[in-house]
């Protein structure tokens, strides 16, 4: 490895960070400014830095729009990082929390607990979601392992689809038995940032931030693991432990984002693949870039979701799926046999 090449590369990678941060900030402000009543950007900046409770617009911004924007950032970065980690550790370009059933598990657990236990305390919702996601992950990997042929991308994707379908069925049966709340849940189950309780964010935030920090710390080892188990072992990585920790991280990140916004598919697929185009295969770059780009992406999608059929709004999760599914198809086509 010669010095000039790596230093230009490093420079290019570093230079992307301020650009992304700029884009993120711009989308953040735009996201807040655009809504049922459009507000000038100036007022948005004022409301964030110099809030004045007597101004009506400032109260709208601080009470309603700011939380939604913060949630979009949290969910977007969590899902993108979760997807990146899964792809690295399983060496499966099609791995994604939604496709592999983790989201279905998390939302199933949340729906069941909030329907049967009545008012489950908000603090436990991220944990309930995590348990659901963990269960689904174990089930999906178990099925794929025992299926003839082993855990290839194909069997993993299929068992993920099967487990998701099964959990979806259970939710539908629950709905048929108890029709109240169907109207509420059918929107939530498509993944939306609208009308979410900001209090969930307070309870999810510690888990989320903690998981993101640990992910950054592990990125170096994930890079080694992405080159193969043998290589990683040779480089001194404890592969078994790393896989367990990553599974826990992915479960926690997915669970927090589902608790915040419901299942939102394909972010974990789209963002890491986009990031790899720019920074290559080093997870020390992929993880932070995914977090930033994921946040900006979800802000952008959420803006689009709110303006495309004004005055109504579309579920954000529907749009992420509409963008993500074609990319999935493209990726499959790219894989040369």
């Amino acid at each position: 490895m010669t010095a000039p090449v790596s230093s230009t590369k490093r420079f290019a990678a570093w230079s992307g960070v301020p650009v992304l941060l700029g884009v993120l900030a711009l989308f953040f402000l735009l996201h807040i400014a655009i809504g049922a009543k459009d507000l000038p950007l100036r007022q948005v900046v004022d409301a964030i830095f110099f809030p004045d409770p007597s101004v009506f617009e400032h109260r709208i911004i601080r009470d309603m729009r700011l939380p939604r924007a913060v949630m979009a950032i949290a969910v977007g970065s969590a899902l993108a990082v979760a997807g990146a980690l899964m792809q690295g550790v399983t060496r499966n370009p099609l791995a994604e929390p939604g496709l592999l059933g983790l989201m279905a598990g998390a939302s199933f657990a949340v729906v069941i607990v909030s329907n049967t236990a009545g008012l489950a305390h908000l603090a436990v919702i991220p944990l309930v979601a995590a348990l659901g996601a963990l269960g689904a992950a174990v089930l999906v990997f178990g099925i794929a392992r025992f299926a003839p042929g082993g855990a290839t991308p194909l069997t993993l994707t299929l068992s993920g689809a099967a487990v998701s379908a099964f959990l979806g069925t259970c939710v539908s049966i629950g709905h048929l038995l108890n029709e109240e709340g169907f109207d509420d849940l059918r929107v939530w189950l498509t993944g939306t940032l609208a009308g979410r309780d900001i209090a969930v964010l307070y309870f999810a935030a510690p888990w989320l931030i903690g998981s993101l920090i640990v992910s950054l710390g592990l990125a170096r080892q994930v890079t080694a693991l992405a080159m193969g188990d043998e290589v990683a072992k040779g480089l001194g990585v404890e592969t078994g432990r790393l896989k367990l920790v990553t599974l826990a991280l992915v479960v926690m990140l997915t669970a927090c984002s589902v608790a915040l916004a419901g299942p939102m598919g394909f972010i974990g697929l789209v963002i890491p693949h986009a990031v790899r185009l720019f920074v290559g295969s080093d997870y020390r770059w992929i993880v932070p870039y995914s977090a930033l780009l994921g946040a900006a992406y979800l802000l952008g999608v959420d803006i689009f979701a709110r303006i495309v059929i004004r005055p109504q709004e579309l579920s954000t999760g529907i749009i992420t799926a509409m963008i993500g599914a074609p990319l999935f198809i493209y990726l499959v086509r790219q894989r040369s046999r």
Partner: peptide
């Protein structure tokens, strides 16, 4: 490929379906 494409297309279809349903 047929299966993986199918899963991708299925995801697309069901997102449009749920948009219509919602």
């Amino acid at each position: 490929r047929f299966i993986l494409m199918g899963i991708g297309v299925a995801a697309l279809m069901s997102s449009v379906t749920s948009a219509l349903m919602t």
